[in-house]
């Protein structure tokens, strides 16, 4: 049985102009020890999807699903108190903004040990020892001294390492990393990603990595789900998706990345024409059709997944036609 099983997740946000369908019918599973990358641009619903799993959505957002199971527990009906016990202990999250995600008023040590002590009945000394152990593991020198420091005294890279250590305090089964490297320097980005991949293997955790960086996905993911306008448009093993990207949007994204040696110097980078559609109001058909080179009248109709190869699903009714054109 999958560790996390998400079926037909829907997130609606009522706004003054109508209901915003931020996420529509997103399904995926994550096995123990597996890394799923959720890829998409800003506003594609990938962060909301992760917040929905953690039950941390803004109060106005409405979450629905046909199934949302975590290690056998039904997260749709679980009482808030039980959910709180899962959060931080069995499933933990690393956020995008290390600069603002730590409380400015408390020391690093206070915030690290709190993660452990609000779940497990451990003494202050044991919690401190665990915090030091993890700070050292995430590559922070002088861990004991760091415990007494405040967030504003640390750099962004250090703060993100602290966030990672904090997420690991209770040895979670699932860790959700929401664009953990976006706010960091490129050199630090690589270090943090390597660290996450190592820790995941070492602790046999499952990981959901949310990113808009396909380069990152290629390096660390076992499985990929590409999201566009609140829906998964393509999903499968990272190998299959990168080998044969089948949704026009996925191919568009890959074309935007310059590859050293393959992209001619001075050649214009790929771009996807048009704009992301407005998600307010009733949506029918493929949300990408107004930007798609293969669009046809049937793209406005009912959507379903095609399976070009086993374990690789593409939400496109024009798959055969695409092949014919290519």
């Amino acid at each position: 049985m999958a560790l996390l099983d998400v079926q037909d997740l829907v997130i609606d946000i009522p706004t003054a102009g109508g209901v915003l369908h931020a996420v529509s019918e997103v399904s995926f599973t994550v096995e123990r020890g597996e890394t799923l990358a959720i890829v998409g641009e800003s506003g594609s619903g990938k962060s909301l999807t992760s917040l929905a799993i953690m039950d941390l959505l803004p109060r106005v957002a409405q979450r629905r699903a046909t199934r949302l199971n975590f290690d056998g527990a039904d997260l749709l009906t679980i009482p808030a108190r039980q959910m709180r016990k899962l959060r931080g202990s069995r499933m933990a999250m690393i956020f995008q903004e290390p600069m603002t995600s730590l409380n400015p008023a408390y020391t690093i040590g206070n915030q690290l040990t709190e993660a452990l002590r609000c779940h497990d009945d451990v003494g202050a000394e044991a919690a401190r020892a665990r915090a030091i152990e993890l700070l050292e593991r995430v590559g922070i020198a002088g861990a004991e001294r760091r415990l007494l420091q405040y967030p504003h005294q640390l750099s962004g890279g250090l703060r993100q390492r602290v966030m990672i250590a904090m997420a690991l305090m209770c040895k979670p089964d699932l860790i959700i990393a929401d664009e953990p490297t976006t706010a960091l320097d490129v050199t630090i980005q690589a270090q943090i990603l390597r660290l996450l991949a190592e820790l995941k293997k070492e602790l046999n955790m499952a990981m959901i990595l949310i990113t808009h960086d396909l380069g990152v996905v290629a390096r660390v993911a076992d499985k990929v789900a590409v999201m566009y306008a609140g829906a998964v448009v393509e999903r499968g093993s990272a190998r299959a998706v990168f080998k044969a990207p089948s949704h026009p949007y996925t191919r568009g994204l890959l074309n935007c990345i310059p590859v050293p040696g393959r992209t001619a110097p001075g050649a214009p980078l790929g771009a996807i024409r048009g704009q992301v559609p407005n998600l307010i109001g009733r949506l029918a058909g493929c949300a990408f059709r107004n930007r798609c080179d293969f669009a046809a009248p049937e793209c406005a109709g009912e959507m379903h997944f095609e399976t070009p190869t086993p374990g690789h699903d593409v939400r496109c009714v024009r798959l055969a036609a695409q092949k014919a054109v290519a």
């Binding site: 953690m54 941390l56 709180r84 016990k85 899962l86 959060r87 931080g88 202990s89 933990a92 999250m93 956020f95 903004e97 603002t100 995600s101 730590l102 409380n103 400015p104 709190e114 993660a115 609000c118 779940h119 966030m163 904090m166």
Partner: peptide, 12 residues
């Protein structure tokens, strides 16, 4: 953001 972090930790 840090309030969301606290909630993500499972703090009461």
């Amino acid at each position: 953001d840090y309030i969301r972090t606290a909630r993500a930790k499972g703090v009461a």
